[in-house]
Amino acid sequence: MCLAIPAKIIKIDGFIAEVDIEGNIKEVNITLTPEAKVGDYLLLHAGYAIQILDEKSANEIFEAWDDVYEAF
């Protein structure tokens, strides 16, 4: 039920954003993520963005783990 999927913002008009979900274009509501801007990746749940994804942090954790790996 708490499934959420990532989508990239193409266009914003007020609280509605046009997003690309793996090639499908859809309109979603961004009331809960007012700071979202074009190019951001959103986490979508039931037609609304619930968080802006942080791709940098995603990479950081892998890099940290790789350092651990190197140590062994």
Partner: peptide, 18 residues
Amino acid sequence: IQYKRAVRPEGNPVAVGF
């Protein structure tokens, strides 16, 4: 937090406010 790409320590304060 392992799921750092989606979860920040403060969460989404706007959503909590709603």
